[in-house]
Amino acid sequence: MNDNPLALIIEDDEDLAAIFGEALQAAQFATEIISDGAVAQRRLKEVIPSLVVLDLHLPNVSGEILLRQLRANPALARTRVVIASADPISADMLRSESDLVLVKPVSFSQLRDLAQRLRLT
């Protein structure tokens, strides 16, 4: 289990975070769920996840800011980012800065399969 790469799930909706967690675990990731932007900001300075599932609407610090900071950090250059947003327009605008954009509702199997592919490449 500890050999599995780390996936951070930054999502404030408890249920969605749980489902994302299940999907990523099914894709052989070790998962950690964070529901607050500020907490995520701190955590990203401590760990180097190989995958981040990012919601855009977060308390305290928005997903958009987190994405910019993450991309500006050379230590996280290899980290893959999947954006999960309910708003297709703002999600679309961040398409170039992320590896994948998923518009909610995100399907369990879809996320599992995509994460699996991302882990292998």
Binding site: D13, D15, L16, E22, A23, A86, P105, V106, S107, F108
Partner: peptide, 9 residues
């Protein structure tokens, strides 16, 4: 949509 997404998941 949010709870429906959760039910789906």
């Amino acid at each position: 949509r949010t709870p429906l997404g959760a039910i789906m998941g």
